[in-house]
Write a protein that binds this DNA or RNA. Structure first.
Lengths: 116, 116
DNA sequence: TGGAAAGGTTACTTTTTGTAACTTACATCC
DNA sequence: GGATGTAAGTTACAAAAAGTAACCTTTCCA
């Protein structure tokens, strides 16, 4: 019988939950993409413009992962030439609260470091 | 005069703000560490136990970065042997709302995939 | 006729993470 | 008094993720 040190339960549960979220929303781009698509549905090229700094390679990877996790839907539109539309799912839109909270803190932080 | 396509303003601001946050809270461990320290101050070894899966190497790196960003404080205690305590700063604790929001979504998501 | 836009993919490089062993100083076990 | 353990890390090396830039196909527009 080892005298194991018990992790704090309440804390451990929180950490586990956060970990679950970070597994789905990993990398620095997914939250931004979700936030964009919460705002409105967009095409690949629009996202490339909106999510500043992301490369095509990363965007397509991230979109695939988000689609696999059923947070967004990819639709190929029957236009000439074909366009592709990415839209948040109902489930994905439950993340809106989360993205808003992050953005709010970011705005406050920006004010703080810019110095009022 | 190029016919530049304007990014959506409201959306762009949000994306910028999120990007700022992700620069500070990058990687998959920082948010968990902050959440832990919001719960109570902890020593290095305690964090190593609480933040399941993190390695010593990553923990010390992440702690350094968080300290640089003034979200936590490192204190060496004059004990035998020396112990080191990490504590959230007042500023860091403004992230509590953010970590809670993430954890809440994580809990709901877990229920959903486990299939209630 | 030849850009440019749309929606990507590929090859290659750089950066980040992860793994595991090692360190120094004290403390306890047998 | 040698072996083992805790505390708080660091180091060297390997694997994974991200970034960069060029390329591809189809179609529109001048």
């Amino acid at each position: 019988m080892k005298p194991e040190i018990e992790p704090i339960k309440e804390c451990s549960h929180t950490i586990l939950a956060i970990h679950d979220v970070m597994d789905i929303l990993n990398g620095k781009w997914k939250i931004s993409i979700i936030a964009c698509l919460c705002y409105k549905k967009m095409r690949y090229s629009e996202l490339l413009r909106e999510v500043k700094g992301i490369s095509g390679r990363m965007l397509s990877r991230e979109l695939k992962e988000l689609e696999m996790n059923q947070l967004i839907i990819r639709t190929v539109l029957d236009t000439q030439p074909v366009t592709v539309e990415y839209e948040i799912t109902e489930y994905g839109s439950t993340l809106k609260n989360l993205t808003n909270t992050i953005a709010e803190w970011g705005l406050k932080h920006r004010k703080r470091i810019i110095g009022k």
